[in-house]
């Protein structure tokens, strides 16, 4: 179980969502979601596959447009931003993809350099190399600098994916299924890394997962997405202290799996 996080500032909301709705053709995925993320908090969004968890963070990062609702990130209403303003906001958001989304044709170093070259143009090559070394060291993969993504294991790819998002020092981290497809030991290492990132870089994070071990290890607060709405929220134990059969079933099946 995660210790109480003293860095959470409940007076500052970094993400505020009200009445968020999103449908694909006739299927309504999100049916009026409300959510707050506070400065320094690790918020876990739990739910079964296909319940719209990833859709939620794609809307937050502006990859998808909401049908209805209000999404405010760091004081900016995402849906109303011009492309230029959206890009400026995206520099403050780190997005770690489920399959890492490393650029296949580039080495690890080139992957990490890619955002730096475009968004930190005043840096010299020496500065870039130093920053790359720092983030690689932070994710414990200093030796992988010149490797191609295809040469890395699943866990290493996840770490490099996280390193790439950290390189521009984001204020918010969005993790999409960070432990999906990993063995239990690597999953524990990734959970530790998420907590370490939060401590070291003082980020606020939303972690999308259906892995209860991950939720317990990294979540300061847990919300549960069921039938397109958040049904439960609180600490991990509070969320599962319920008679709601759907929540109990999710808990039981997770551990049987």
């Amino acid at each position: 179980m995660k210790e109480i996080n003293p860095r959470i500032d409940r007076s500052r909301k970094v993400i505020e969502i009200r009445g968020l709705k999103k449908a694909f053709d006739d299927f309504e995925v999100l049916k009026g979601v409300d959510l707050d993320l506070y400065q320094g908090e690790n918020l876990v969004v739990l739910g079964r596959s296909g319940t719209g968890k990833s859709v939620l963070i794609k809307i937050i990062s502006g990859l998808l447009k909401p049908d209805e609702g209000y999404v405010n990130v760091l004081g900016e209403e995402v849906d109303r931003l011009t492309p230029k303003e959206l890009d400026a906001l995206r520099l403050k958001i780190g997005f770690s993809f489920q399959n890492s989304a490393l650029y296949d044709s580039m080495t690890v170093k080139e992957n990490l350099e890619f955002p730096l070259i475009r968004h930190a143009k005043d840096l010299t090559q020496k500065d870039r190399d130093r920053i790359i070394s720092v983030v690689l060291e932070a994710v414990g993969l200093s030796q992988a600098m010149n490797q191609m993504p295809s040469e890395l294991s699943g866990g290493q790819r996840k770490r490099i994916g996280i390193a790439r998002t950290l390189i521009l020092k984001p204020e918010i981290m969005l993790y999409d299924e960070p432990t999906a497809g990993l063995d239990p030991i690597t999953s524990i290492e990734i959970n530790r890394l998420i907590n370490e990132v939060q401590r070291r870089f003082n980020t606020s994070s939303i972690i999308i997962t259906h892995d209860l071990t991950c939720a317990k290890a990294v979540g300061d607060r847990v919300v549960m997405l069921l039938d397109g709405q958040f049904q439960r929220q609180g600490t991990f134990d509070e969320v599962f202290d319920t008679n709601d059969e759907r929540v109990k079933a999710f808990y039981n099946y997770n551990f049987i799996d």
Binding site: L63, N99, A101, Y103, P115, R118
Partner: peptide, 17 residues
Amino acid sequence: GSMRVTEQIDAMEVSAT
């Protein structure tokens, strides 16, 4: 197509590229 499937294009977009 492979970049789209593996979310590399989305990764570029969210990194403001």
